[in-house]
Every structure is written in structure tokens, then in C-alpha cells.
């Protein structure tokens, strides 16, 4: 199935111990219909990415919203647990409501005046694949003609605690981000997305060899076992080295994809995921 990519937005912010989280207010200025109160950073990141992606684009009345995240709204969950357990208080209502992943979808819908499908989906290390699979199925079935697909990952401070939760070594760089694509059933857009399934490593490898052009890029998702990812990437070694010092970000593949599409990069980006004992999925983003 071939799907058009009508728009994309990319926000990715690596952070080290000396850094403070960037203020989002200035970036959000002019992007929100109303000043949303009692919202957290996760919601701000979601509003920022979705509004930038939809800027200057006509959203259809049936446009679905597919928001994904590996870790979800960590800041509100931390605040709620602090109130509940350390302070022994009833959580503040809006902190409690904002602990839900789907709350960000409400504010996006309100901001962009969306009223159709609205879901929040998580798959640790591969949330982009989960939301893309879901949105592509709905587009294929004609449930909607347009789908706004986004991934948001929030970083909380102190970074030492953030790293401990993820089991990361001290000093590891981390990144927050908001990565968005506007998909449409018509493939007339400048960029397209196709997806294919393969029964084996050999099949996906043969297919990639048959379509590969100089300048193409291949990435393997976080769920792909490192040995098979390395084997696949060795065959396309000239372009496949993923950021060697990439900061920790649960949806790094979403950052690669939206950076590629938003920049209007020529050529093709392939995102592969799979394991030796099961089939492989290949998402192809191309011009």
C-alpha cells in the first residue's frame, strides 16, 4: 500500500547534565488557539509537534490522530507519585488526569479542531511502528482519508533519576522529542510511505538489494536484535551507520524518519524491524 506524506515536523533536543530543558512557550507562541492551562511538558511537546506538522495544511474532517510514546507523560506521573507516596496527599486533579497518555490527544484535538479517531499507543522501543501499523490499517480500510501520526518522548529532570529509570549508565546523553507525519490515502504528496512484510532475513535482504540506490539510508528499529540488525546493516554499510553517539530516546527511529521527511531529503529511508525467528517489517519513506 502506498500512502502520501503531506507534511512532517521534527523536534529533537539532546540534553546533558549541564543543560536545562528548553522553554517551550516561545516555540508554542502562535501555534495554539487558546492558552491551555494545567497542562504538562508532555502535552506541550505534543501540541508543538502536531501544530507544526499541521501548519498550512488543510486537515480533513475525518483526520485521525495517532499519538505514540514509549514512556508517556513521565513528569505528571512523577508529580502524582510524589504527592501520593512521599507527601501522603491526594493527587492534584490535573496532575492525575495528565498521567494518562491519551490526555495529550485531547489537547491536540482541541487545538487542531479534530473530532475523529483519537488514540494513544505505546510499544517500548518501537512506538512509531505501532502507530504506523495502526494508522495504515485504518487508511487501507477507508476509516479515514488522513491520519496525523506523532511520537512524543519527554525527558524529566534530574537526568540522573531519568537515567536510573531506563537503566542507563551515568552520564549518558538523553533526548526529548516530538516527531510527526501527516499521512493521506492519496499518494499524490511529495513523499510517500510504503510498507512490506518479509518472511525471513534473506527475503528482506534480497529485496533491499534489488531496490537500493546510492544515497539511500537503512535503519533498524530498537526492537530488532543487534546481531541481525548488524548483519543487515553490513550489507548496506556505506550508508547505514546510525548516529554512533545517539542520545537515549525511546523512539529514536521516529526522530530519524521525521528528520528525513521534514528536511525533504532526496532518496529513500528504509526502517526495518524483525527478529531471526519471525517475519520482518520494512517501512519505506521516499520521494
Amino acid at each position: 500500500m502506498k500512502i502520501g506524506i503531506a507534511a512532517a515536523s521534527h523536534y529533537f533536543q539532546p540534553l546533558g547534565d549541564a543543560d536545562t530543558l528548553p522553554a517551550l512557550d516561545d516555540m508554542l507562541a502562535g501555534l495554539c488557539r487558546e492558552p491551555f492551562r494545567r497542562v504538562d511538558r508532555f502535552i506541550h511537546l505534543a501540541l508543538l509537534g502536531s501544530a507544526r506538522c499541521a501548519l498550512g495544511v488543510a486537515l480533513q474532517p475525518d483526520c485521525g490522530l495517532y499519538l505514540g510514546s514509549g514512556l508517556g507523560p513521565m513528569g505528571s506521573n512523577i508529580a502524582t507519585q510524589e504527592q501520593l507516596i512521599r507527601e501522603r496527599n491526594i493527587p492534584r486533579p490535573f496532575d492525575f488526569i495528565n498521567t494518562l497518555g491519551g490526555s495529550a490527544g485531547y489537547y491536540i484535538a482541541r487545538n487542531l479542531e479534530l473530532s475523529a479517531q483519537n488514540v494513544f499507543i505505546s510499544r517500548r522501543g518501537a512506538s512509531l511502528q505501532a502507530v504506523l501499523n495502526t494508522a495504515l490499517a485504518d487508511l487501507a480500510l477507508g476509516i479515514m482519508t488522513q491520519a496525523l501520526v506523532g511520537i512524543v518522548e519527554e525527558v524529566t529532570q534530574p537526568l540522573a533519576a531519568h537515567r536510573r529509570r531506563q537503566g542507563l549508565p551515568a552520564g549518558t546523553a538523553v533526548a526529548e522529542g516530538s516527531h510527526w507525519l501527516l499521512l493521506q490515502a492519496s499518494a499524490s504528496a511529495a513523499s510517500v510511505l510504503t510498507t512490506k512484510r518479509f518472511a525471513s532475513f534473506a527475503e528482506i535482504s534480497d529485496y533491499l538489494k534489488s531496490v537500493w540506490r546510492p544515497g539511500d539510508q537503512l535503519r533498524c528499529s530498537g526492537r530488532t536484535e543487534s546481531s541481525t540488525a548488524a548483519a543487515l546493516q553490513r550489507q548496506f554499510a556505506e550508508v547505514s551507520a546510525p548516529h554512533p553517539n545517539a542520545p537515549f530516546h525511546d523512539s529514536l527511529e521516529a526522530a530519524w524518519v521525521t528528520e528525513f521527511v521534514a528536511a525533504g531529503t532526496a532518496g529513500n529511508l528504509y526502517l526495518a524491524s524483525g527478529t531471526p525467528d519471525r517475519d520482518w517489517t520494512l517501512f519505506h519513506f521516499g520521494t
Partner: peptide, 25 residues
Amino acid sequence: DTYNYNTACTSSANALLAALRMLAV
């Protein structure tokens, strides 16, 4: 594959609907 839905009280209804559509395609 895994899909984890967190849309408050509609979470598992949305999981059912998504699974049904994945089977349909």
C-alpha cells in the same frame, strides 16, 4: 508485536477495535 492502549476508559475497547481492523487488512 505488542500494542498498548492508554485512552482512559476506552483503552481496551480501542485495543479491540484496532485488533479487529488489523485482522481485516
